[in-house]
């Protein structure tokens, strides 16, 4: 505890605290308060080319998105909306895999350390590089009239399964499974580490006692390990729901920028990315802001609901 001897020291201390806090507060004010406030503000404006500025547009931006997506149910808008939520399903598939893998590491399976490194590799390699390598595995190459296939493409052909894996046409049904597969491979590493860390915190006395009582590998997982790491899983479930906000790199890179017929592969974050990147940025920014806010309005109650449900289901654990 700091003992303040005199007024000058007190002043110095307060100055020091103020200085230390000022950076964080400034950061918070600019990158959180201002950015979010301005995003909300822009949703009520449109860019006027003649005034070269934003003019009030009421709720029209919201009305347009709602009308196109939910009332008229335009295929392009509806597909974009629904695709966005595929991020949740990708992560729900990752969840059990990462728990089992982390548990295997926790139980020190053979070559556990090597596997740990291998699993973590996708997390430290650029997603662009990973996507290129992944695409090459499935691609069909034509050279001088002869066709050559990527390793996985070749493998599936041995069993007579030879679709055009990377087709973005309406009848092509392999691109989404590839996006899922890639999402799982790329997302597994971080999640395994998260789960492993939670498991490593379990006191060894508990697991030793369980083993002495004859608890097997799987029984220990389901009756001891899982209940004890439930707080981590709850947090992770919350993160799964919010993952929809960042779901665009995987489909965008794997389809090589092709949105597909009626936006078969498009997602809202990808659309926002396009709207703030293109040449007419000022005129498309309000639409991008509106999509972002609407998505938040849908996600926020969902996150709250999920947290509430999982808190009810999760036993109070402290160790």
């Amino acid at each position: 505890m700091i003992v303040i001897k005199n007024k000058r020291s007190k002043l110095k201390l307060y100055l020091f605290i103020a200085l230390m806090l000022s950076v964080s507060l400034l950061h918070f004010a600019i990158f959180y308060v201002y950015v979010n406030f301005d995003t909300v503000r822009l949703t009520f404006f449109r860019f006027d080319e003649i005034e070269n500025g934003y003019v009030f547009n009421g709720f029209k931006n919201y009305a347009d998105v709602i009308r196109h997506t939910f009332i008229e149910g335009r295929a392009t808008d509806l597909n974009t909306f629904l695709n966005t939520f595929r991020a949740i399903s990708v992560n729900l598939i990752i969840l059990p895999i990462s728990i089992i893998t982390a548990y295997a590491f926790y139980k020190k399976v053979y070559a556990e350390k090597t596997f740990r490194v291998i699993f973590y590799l996708p997390s430290i390699i650029s997603i662009v590089v990973q996507c290129s390598a992944f695409l090459a595995m499935f691609k069909t190459y034509t050279y001088n009239g002869e066709e050559f296939y990527g390793p996985y493409n070749q493998f599936f052909r041995l069993f007579g399964y030879a679709p055009e894996w990377l087709s973005t046409a309406s009848e092509g049904n392999t691109m989404w499974p590839l996006i899922y597969a890639f999402g799982i491979i790329a997302g597994l590493g971080t999640n395994v580490i998260l789960m492993s860390s939670a498991m490593l915190r379990i006191p060894s006395s508990i697991t030793e006692a369980a083993e002495l009582d004859g608890c097997g590998f799987y029984r220990e997982l389901f009756t001891i390990t899982l209940p004890l790491i439930m707080p981590t899983i709850t947090t992770w479930i919350t993160m799964i729901v919010t993952s929809v906000f960042g779901f665009f790199m995987q489909p965008m890179l794997l389809t090589e920028g092709a949105r597909g017929t009626d936006n078969k592969f498009y997602t809202i974050p990808w659309q926002i990315f396009d709207q703030v990147q293109n040449g007419a940025a000022k005129s498309t920014i309000p639409a991008a802001a509106t999509l972002g806010i609407l998505l938040s309005l849908i996600i926020m109650p969902l996150v709250t609901l999920m947290r509430w449900i999982f808190k009810k289901l999760t036993p109070e654990v402290s160790f």
């Binding site: 691609k139 001088n144 046409a169």
Partner: peptide, 18 residues
């Protein structure tokens, strides 16, 4: 299959005489 190609796949193939 044009649905799986970009122009960067097609034009070099044309230059190769395919």
């Amino acid at each position: 299959d044009p649905s799986a190609l970009t122009i960067k796949d097609v034009q070099p193939a044309f230059a190769r005489g395919e």
